[in-house]
Structure formats: C-alpha cells, structure tokens
C-alpha cells in the first residue's frame, strides 16, 4: 500500500509530440482511483509511466516516499492488468502465475501456496494445468488478475481490463473488482474511457483530456459539481445538455432534470419540443427532442410519448449550470442571475 505522486510529469514522443504536460496528481494510499477520458487523452500513458513501461520525459514519479522515475518495472512493487490480458499463451495457468514469483526468487513451497491461494481467490480451481487458449475471455482476465494478486504489490494498475469482455461479464467483473479492492485494501489505479465504469468503481475519479487533468474528485462531486463543459458532458449517461447563448456563454442541464410536467412550486424555464426518438432502456426512457435550443436529451421513467409528439418541457432554475466563454463553470451569483435572464428571454 502506498500513496502515489506525479510531480510535474511530462511525456513527449519523438521530441515533438507532447502527450502529457506538467501532470501533477496525488493518489491516496488505498484508494480506488479511476483515470478516465476519451482515447488519446494520455491516461494510459500516465499509467504506463507509473508502471515503468514508458520513459518519463520530465518530472518525477513517487510510490510511497520512493522516487521510482527511473526504476525497472519489476522493481516498483506494482502489478498490472492489461486490456488484452497479456498472459503467456504457451504457459499453463499455474505457470503463468508462477513465472513472476520464480523470477522474484520466492521459495518453491511458498510459491505453490500462493499460486493455490490466488487461483482459488479468482475461482479458477481445476484450470491449473490448462493453457490460456482453452479459456474464455473472462477466465483469461481472471488469470491476469490472479497473476497480479500473486505478487502482493503495493499498487494495482489496470489498463481498461474489462473492455474486451461482453457487457454482462463486464458488469460482473466490475463488482468483483470492487470487492477485491475491499479485500486487499491496496491502491488501485484503473484506466478506462468508459464513464460508467469510472462512476461505479472509483472512489476518486480523475478526468483527463488532451494530456491535462480537468477535474479530480469523488464520483458524486464530479457529477454534481462539474468544473467545466468537458467534464459536465463527459460524465453522465448521457452527458449534460449544453446550449450556447448568443453572448458566447453556455448553460446546461442534466437529461434527468428535464421534465414533461411542472412541479407545484415551479421556478425555471419552459419550452416546446418535438420528440425525435425514444429509446426504452428498461425502467428508464431516453428521449431525443428537437427544441428552440437545439437537440436535447431527456431521461425519465415516463414512456407515454411517441415520435413526433409535441411536448412542453420544464427545467428548474436550480438545475441549470452556467459556463463562461472559456467553458469554465460560473459560480458568481450575480453573473448567474444575468445569464438566467438571457436564457429566459431566449
């Protein structure tokens, strides 16, 4: 278990291609931290630098109090689970797990015991002498997990470990990973492009875009209090509706916060809309509507409306978010009041 620090870390490829610039990040000991962002945002690069698989162009990385910036990957007391599992195809499951322990010169008896333990932990008993090609994707991912656990690392690094699994298995593994984190109490760092995974698994989320951290905080904090339009629209399923005003400012509201009916003490904006599409997601329904503000999304439990229906839409004033011309959130009350007037008149 250890706290992790990125201090002013920069990564440049081929001397000109800056992927990460001045990254400063502290990851708490024992946390389940998720780095999330669109592809190419630098999250995987950050993780790989931490693992030692990628050189750091500038800055330092610390695990605990130790500067690991130039340490070999094998000496960092970390374990990594890759998106494509990266288990050795020519070794049996037992050999796959044993390989790292053997290289670490763990005595044979201890090794046998650890292998047995972790295989039981991930539920692969009976598969010890089987080659990976005989296993399903989910089972292979378990082998990768078992291998990681066997090392008893200070830090677990996971690079999109669930994205090659089908949706059902992904949900199941998600729960199992959370349980695993509770059990092991090590620091988990998890990279994903999937905001649902980030929201459901992480106790801290770090949102990245174009090599920069946009916001870091708990899932709830980030959902309720996004600092900029990028975060507001990236988090949430779907993301926040954003509408640009003629003044260049933007206002937004969550799809869950638009309603077809006015509440008793309604204080907010109302506008007409035409139903373009309706997606039934099970208990919830997602509508796409054409309005004077452009296309907006609405999520509700009410499935009575059909395509081409004309509807009235309502959003409470307290559910509106305002952003300045640099797309950053506005907190100033007076400014919000002025902008609200602009919205109402629009």
């Amino acid at each position: 278990m250890a706290k992790i620090q990125f201090k002013d870390v920069t990564k440049v490829y081929d001397k000109k291609n800056k992927v990460i610039e001045h990254l400063n990040l502290e990851i708490e000991n024992g946390s389940f931290t998720v780095l999330v962002g669109p592809s190419g945002c630098g999250k995987t690069t950050a993780l790989r630098m931490l693992a030692g698989l990628e050189e750091v162009s500038a800055g330092r990385i610390f695990i605990g109090d130790e500067d690991v910036t130039v340490k070999e990957p094998g000496d960092r007391e970390i374990a990594m689970v890759f998106q494509n599992y990266a288990i050795y195809p020519h070794m049996t499951i037992r050999e796959n797990i044993d390989f790292g322990l053997k290289n670490a010169k763990v005595p044979k008896e201890t090794r046998e015991q650890i292998v047995k333990e972790v295989i039981t932990l991930v539920g692969l008993e009976g598969y010890e002498e089987v080659k990976p090609s005989k296993l399903s994707g989910g089972q292979r991912q378990r082998v990768a997990l078992a291998r990681a656990i066997s090392k008893k690392p200070k830090v677990f690094l996971m690079d999109e470990p669930l994205s090659n699994l089908d949706a059902k298995l992904r949900n199941q593994m998600r729960t199992e990973l959370i349980q695993l984190h509770h059990k092991l109490k090590s620091t988990f760092i998890y990279v994903t492009h999937d905001q649902i995974e980030a929201m459901t698994m992480g106790d801290k989320i770090v949102i990245m875009n174009q090599g920069e951290i946009h916001q870091a905080g708990s899932p709830r904090e980030i959902y309720n209090d996004p600092r900029n339009i990028f975060v507001a629209q990236f988090i949430g399923d779907p993301g926040m509706n954003g509408i640009k005003l003629t003044s260049g400012y933007t206002f937004g509201f969550r799809p869950r916060k638009v309603t077809f009916q006015k509440s008793g003490e309604f204080n907010g904006i109302e506008f007409k809309g035409i139903v373009l599409t309706r997606e039934i997601l099970g208990s919830e329904v997602l509508y796409c509507l054409d309005t004077a503000f452009g296309k907006i999304m609405l999520k509700t439990n009410d499935e009575t409306h059909q395509s081409d229906d004309q509807v009235m839409l309502y959003v409470e004033k307290s559910d509106l978010y305002f952003f300045d011309r640099e797309e950053n959130r506005i907190y100033d009350k007076e400014q919000i009041e002025t902008l609200y007037k602009e919205v109402v008149s629009a």
Partner: peptide
C-alpha cells in the same frame, strides 16, 4: 505486451529469451 508482462514479472533478458521468445 507479452514482453511488458515479462518485465513486470522481473524476468531478466536471458529468462525472457529462453522462456518467452523461444517458445513463442
């Protein structure tokens, strides 16, 4: 990524050559 795995598994160059490269 197989070689990256081996690095994380503390395999030195010789082990990597004989246990990973040759079999694959």
């Amino acid at each position: 990524y197989i070689y990256e795995s081996a690095k994380l598994d503390m395999a030195n160059k010789l082990t990597t050559f004989f246990k990973i490269t040759i079999p694959l």
